[in-house]
Structures are given as C-alpha cells and as structure tokens.
Simulated scan of single mutants.
Amino acid sequence: MTTLINLDEFGELFTTFEHSAWRLETRRGYASDRKDETYREFIETGTVAWDPEDEWCRNMRAQTSAGKRVGRVRIVDDPPTTGQLYLLDNAKRNAATGEDMRNLWRADAERLQLPREDFWIFDSRFIALLHFDEADTLLNVELITDPAAVMRYAQVRDAALHHSVPYKEFAALAAAKEE
C-alpha cells in the first residue's frame, strides 16, 4: 500500500521513528541546498561553518543519544558535482550528531544496480520515497508499507552499506583523485 504525505508529515517521521532511519541519496544536487545561505558560503570558500544547534542537529543528537540508528549513503559522481561536494562537507555536521555518513561512487552504484530514487527506510517497516521535479525540488513523499516492497528497499540498503565508504575516508579518496 502507498500513501502520499505532505512535507510536514514527512518531517514528523524524524521524531517518531522507533529504532532506525536510513537514506539513499542519489541526486546530483538538491534545490533546497542551492537556496540555503550555507551553499553560497560553500561556493565562495569551499567549506561551511555549520550550525551544530540547528533543528535537524538537535533532533538527530536526541535520536542517536536514545540509541536509535540514523545513517545514509550518498551516491557521488566522478568528478563530484558542486552539490555533492557541498554535501560531502555537510557530512561532518551530520556525523557529529551520530549519523553514520557514507558515500559510494555512482559507477559502483550502477554496477550494483541500485535504484536512482531517493528514499528513507524507517524502522525496516516502511519507505518514504522522495519525489523530485527536474529542478531537484522535493515535491512530495510516498509512504510504502507493502512488506515485499519494504524488503526490496532493505536489500538496497544492505548492498549500499556493504559497498560504501565512511565519509572521511571517501573525502580523502575524492581529494586524492583531484590531485
């Protein structure tokens, strides 16, 4: 079964999940990032002074401090896009909250036949499939609760985690490729 939810309902999932939240990020960039002041800061300086006390960070610290697992794998092009480099810099902020931040080269994701869609899997019970337009704007979120579909996404999660690299190690690999 699938249901569309609005973005406020989607946001609530990050406070109500019971034990785990995990995301696959596949896009080359996100409109929401490009609208943020931190994106302009990154373009100008190559790094960002992230706010560790913003709403996302406070909530993620609370969730991970309660023993819940949060993580994601970001698919990255070779060479990385500006949006992907921005997110690689952002990974240090996410990791500081207790998130397990990992990356995977796009060529490896394609070899593994990972989907090209972004999704969150919550508590291994339901999927929040993110729908974007061509300008990378998040339009809506589709909740998927069918057990067989959830299992397929869980298999994607397992493959992505197995083949991905922790963000610090990945950042070093990406920097070495640029030299």
Rank of each mutant, 00 (worst) to 15 (best):
N140S: 13
A31H: 14
P166H: 09
A154C: 05
F126H: 14
A91S: 15
R23N: 06
S65M: 07
R93T: 04
E25R: 05
T137K: 11
D123L: 04
L161A: 07
Y39M: 01
G98W: 03
G11Q: 08
H162L: 13
L7N: 08
R106L: 13
E117D: 10
F42P: 13
T47F: 11
N103A: 13
D51W: 01
L161F: 10
A160H: 11
A66H: 09
G83N: 02
L7F: 08
R125I: 00
L114K: 07
Q113P: 02
Q113Y: 01
T3S: 13
A172L: 14
D36R: 07
G71Q: 01
V156E: 08
I5E: 08
R61M: 00
L85D: 10
G46R: 09
N6M: 01
L13I: 07
Y86A: 06
V165C: 11
I121W: 00
D133K: 04
E179K: 12
M151H: 15
I127A: 03
E18R: 15
E134T: 13
L130Q: 11
T26A: 12
W56Q: 12
R61W: 00
F14Q: 06
N103L: 11
S32R: 14
Q63K: 15
Y167E: 12
L139A: 10
F17A: 05
L138N: 04
T26H: 06
K92W: 02
T15Q: 12
L129A: 05
L88W: 00
G29I: 00
Q113F: 02
F17N: 01
G71M: 00
Q63L: 05
V76G: 03
